[in-house]
Design a protein around this nucleic acid. Structure first.
Lengths: 339, 339
DNA sequence: CTTGACAACGCAAACGTTTACGTATATAAT
DNA sequence: ATTATATACGTAAACGTTTGCGTTGTCAAG
C-alpha cells in the first residue's frame, strides 16, 4: 500500500497539515520537525498522490492532445516529430501529456468534451485545423485554454502557430517557373483542411504573378497519404499532350507517391518531370532522388504551441498570441535539371 | 463554473447521493426522481469531475506509455503506428492514454516512478526492452501492472508481446543465401536493445546452418537512424575485395541509409548489391527500389499489448501472458536480381 | 394492530491532499 | 506585570465523487 501523509503524521505524532507543509517547504514548521518529516518520508518512500493533489488544487498539470487520423491507419511521420516537441516541452514544465487518438470516421468532438467537461486537462492543443472548425468554436465557447497549430476560416480570435503555406507554395512555384516550367500541377490536401486553402492560394498567386493560366485539370484533390499522390500522379501522367512538366503537392508523402508513379511511367524524376513536396519530413532528403520540399520545423512547432499553452496556463498574457512562421524552400534533386 | 452533483441536488431538493445514484443507474431511486435528475443534469450540462471520480474509485482509467527516444529527435515512423494501435484500443475501453517522452540522455526511471508512485495511471506499457531492463525490474518489484513489447535477458516472468526476431533474420538470411550470396553483412541496433540480440542470433544461426563463416568485419553496430545505416553502408562499400554482396539491417530506416550509401557508391541496389531491412514500415514499399523487409504488424502489436494490459486491469487472468509472433518476410526488388 | 419487508432516500465517511483559521507557547516590548 | 508579536503547530473545511448504513414511509401478511 502506498504511504500517505496520514501514515507519516501518525509515525511522528504530528498533524497531516504539518507534514504537508514540511514536505513542500512552506513556512510555519520548525526546522527540527521538518528534518524529521523529510527523513520519514524518505524512508517510507512517500510520493504524493497526484490525483488527490489535482482535486484539491483544481488543476491537473496535464495538457491534452488529440491526434486526428486520416485513413485507416496513420503512419504520418509528421506526428512523431510534433509529439516529441510537445512532449519534451511539457516534460520540462513538469506537465503530463494526455493523448487521445480518434478512430477514423468517428466524430472527434466527444473526445474534446470528455477532456474539457471532465476537467481532465488544464489546456488543449489543437492540430490540423479546418475551415469551419467546430473544435475551436467549442473551446472558445467554453473559454477553455488552448493553442492551435493552424488557422481557420472562421472569424475567431485565438492563439495559434502556423506556417505561411501561401508563401511556401509561392516559393516552390517560383522556383519551378524559374526552371522554365509552364505546366505545373498541384495535388492538394482535402479542402476542408485549412492549410490546403492557403497552399492553393499560393499556387494560384504564383501562377498569376507569372502570367500563367490556371488549369483545372492540373489541380487534384488528394487525401494525405502516399497512395493518394501515387494515384493522382498516374492520372496526371496519362494526360498525354496535356501532361504537366512539374508537380507540386501539399505534403511530402503525396510527393513520394507521385515519384513512384513517375518511375512506373518511365519518367525520370528531376529530369523528365520535376516533383516538389511540402513539410520536409526527414524522409524527403532520403528519397531517391532527394525531394525538393518546403521545410516546416515540426519539432519546434510542437515545442512552440506547447510553450504558448503553458504560458496561458500560468495566467500570463501572450506576447505573441499568433505566430506565423516563414517557411523555407529546400531545393533538392527532384526539381533540379542537372540530374 | 462547471456544474456538480451538489448543484443538481440543491435544485431538486434531494441529496447528493440520490443524484449520484440516479445518474449512474443504481438501484434505490424512484423512477420519477431519476427522470427529474436526468432532466436537470441534461439541462445544466452536468459531466462528472473525472479527477474526483478517480480519487474516490482509486482508479484512474488511464494507462501510461513512455516513448523512448534515441538521438536528438525521433522521427521513427514506428511509433506513430504503435501509438495509433494503443490509442485506439484504449479508447474503445474508455481508457485515457498518458504519454511521456523522455528527452534523450535523460534517465527514464524517474518518469516511471512519477506515474507509478503518483498513482497517475493504472498500468503501463513498456516498449523497446533492453537486456538488463531496470524499468521491468522496477515494475515487477512494485507489483505494478504492465505489459511489454519485447523480452529481456533477465530471468523474469512478465507479460509481453514480441516478434520472433531470430526467426525473422533467419528468414532474410535464408532468402539471401538462396539468391547465391556468400558475403552478407549485418548492421545491428545498439546491443543493449533486446531485439538486437535476437536478430544477431538469427543472423549467426543462418550462417551456421548454411556452412558460411562468421566474419566480424561484416557485422556493424549502428544506432537506429537512417544516418547510421548510411555511415555503416559507406564503411562496408569501401572494403574493396572484402565487400559484401548483400546487407541486412536491424530496421528499415538503416536499410534506407544503406541504400543511399550504395547509390552514392555507384552500386545498383537489387543488382550490384542486395539490401534488406526489418520492420516493414510503410516506407519500405515506397522506397526505390522497394525494400525487402521483415514485416511486423506494428499497429496490431500496439492493440495487443494494450488489450492485454486492459485484461490485467480488469483483474482477469491472461490466457496467453506471453505472445511470440512469427514475422513474415516480404521480398521486394531490393534483394531481387531480376532488376 | 403489530410486525416485517421493502423501497426511497439522506447522512456521513472516505479517497489524499491543501490551506484558512484558531490556539498554545515562547519571546520581546511596554 | 501586561500586552504585543512571532513561531509552531493542530483543526477542520474544502475539492467532487462514491457508498455503507441508517432512517422514514408504505403496504401487505400475520
Amino acid at each position: 500500500m502506498p504511504v500517505t501523509l496520514q501514515d507519516i503524521a501518525q509515525e511522528l505524532n504530528v498533524s497531516i497539515a504539518t507534514v504537508s507543509r514540511a514536505l513542500r517547504g512552506m513556512p510555519g514548521v520548525a526546522e527540527s520537525t521538518r528534518k524529521l518529516v523529510l527523513k520519514a518520508a524518505q524512508e517510507r518512500g512517500y510520493y504524493p498522490n497526484l490525483t488527490a493533489q489535482q482535486l484539491q488544487r483544481q488543476r491537473t498539470n496535464t495538457i491534452g492532445f488529440i491526434i486526428p487520423t486520416f485513413g485507416p491507419r496513420f503512419s504520418d511521420p509528421f506526428f512523431s516529430e510534433l509529439l516529441a516537441g510537445i512532449g519534451n516541452a511539457a516534460a520540462e514544465a513538469e506537465f503530463d501529456l494526455l493523448v487521445s487518438t480518434v478512430a477514423p470516421g468517428k466524430d472527434e468532438l466527444p473526445g474534446y468534451q470528455h477532456l474539457v467537461a471532465g476537467r481532465r486537462v488544464d489546456g488543449l492543443l489543437v492540430v490540423r485545423t479546418r475551415r469551419q472548425d467546430q473544435r475551436i468554436a467549442y473551446l472558445l465557447a467554453e473559454e477553455f485554454p488552448f493553442v492551435a497549430f493552424g488557422r481557420t476560416d472562421q472569424e475567431l480570435n485565438f492563439p495559434y502557430v502556423d506556417v505561411d503555406g501561401e508563401q511556401g507554395l509561392f516559393q516552390v512555384m517560383t522556383h519551378l517557373i524559374e526552371q522554365g516550367h509552364q505546366r505545373i500541377a498541384f495535388i492538394n490536401a482535402p479542402e476542408e483542411l485549412m492549410f490546403a486553402q492557403y497552399r492553393l492560394a499560393g499556387y494560384r498567386q504564383a501562377l498569376a504573378a507569372h502570367g500563367l493560366p490556371y488549369d483545372d485539370d492540373l489541380v487534384r484533390l488528394g487525401g494525405l497519404a502516399e497512395t493518394d499522390g501515387y494515384q493522382a500522379g498516374w492520372e496526371l501522367f496519362c494526360l498525354g499532350e496535356q501532361m504537366p512538366t512539374a508537380v507540386c503537392t501539399s505534403n511530402d508523402l503525396m510527393a513520394l507517391g507521385v515519384m513512384r508513379a513517375a518511375r512506373e511511367c518511365g519518367l525520370q524524376v528531376g529530369g523528365d518531370i520535376a516533383i516538389a513536396g511540402f513539410d520536409d519530413i526527414p524522409l524527403a532528403q532520403m528519397a531517391h532522388p532527394p525531394l525538393t520540399s518546403v521545410h516546416q520545423p515540426i519539432y519546434q512547432i510542437g515545442r512552440l504551441i506547447c510553450e504558448k499553452l503553458l504560458c496561458l496556463l500560468r495566467g500570463e498574457e501572450l506576447t505573441e498570441p499568433q505566430t506565423l512562421l516563414l517557411p523555407e524552400l529546400v531545393v533538392r534533386e527532384s526539381t533540379d535539371y542537372r540530374v
